[in-house]
Design a protein around this nucleic acid. Structure first.
Lengths: 114, 114
DNA sequence: AGGGAATATTCACGTCAGGGAATATTCAAA
DNA sequence: TTTGAATATTCCCTGACGTGAATATTCCCT
């Protein structure tokens, strides 16, 4: 068992790391869209759009609702909540830069130990 | 300006999406470590560890401090702050009150009538 | 039933990132 | 200055992934 993070799987990140998929997510944050609308607004071809949406869907980032001929995609909140929880656990890291003195003292202590 | 060549632009997310690099980040959150310590604790070979650290460094995720023979790596707060800012912009999505599918369907029907 | 629109899927191909192995570099100590 | 430890770099290979093109599927409409 490698050290897995609670809630955040690497697949979420790798799915989002693809530029087109990130653009799709940015689009969908404003509301649900069909495949055609996504492809049109992003200048993507329909097959590639469907493929990217499949990756996002397989990773639980979006969900789809069939409406007659069309498929309406929208974001699922869970992966974003998980990402938020994960990034919050780095609060200490994120604050270190704001407290240079603390950082400096810690390095001093480390040097004295050796 | 949309000229982003794939593979050239290594964003924070794609750097973190690699499992070994994510493990390195998880390790470093507890404090600075040398290359050898990282490789040892993760069961990685030294060259691959250095390569992954270079990717993390090139993306500003870690910074290195030379200490004689060794290189001490530690996390930089900026990318995590940026990630936090980005994920916070999905508050609406995470709170699940952005999607009213019925309204969207009505809008779709209105568009078709024209 | 047939045509067309919307979407999904398959196949071939090129590219790129990661691993392995070997080598280069840098530093401390004897 | 030579040795050995720690780290970085290079080269090669392979698997994964994104694209394009063509095709399949599903649905509405007449």
């Amino acid at each position: 068992m490698s050290g897995k993070l609670p809630g955040v799987n690497m697949t979420t990140l790798s799915a989002l790391s693809e530029p087109n998929r990130m653009n799709i997510v940015e689009l969908l944050r404003h509301g649900p869209l069909t495949v055609g609308e996504i492809a049109d607004q992003l200048g993507l071809r329909q097959p590639q759009t469907s493929k990217h949406l499949k990756v996002l869907s397989d990773n639980g980032i979006v969900e789809v609702q069939a409406e007659a001929n069309r498929r309406i995609y929208k974001l699922r909140p869970e992966p974003f909540q998980a990402l938020d929880t994960w990034i919050q656990s780095f609060r200490r890291v994120m604050q270190e830069r704001f407290d240079n003195l603390d950082d400096y003292l810690k390095e001093l202590q480390n040097k004295e130990k050796s």
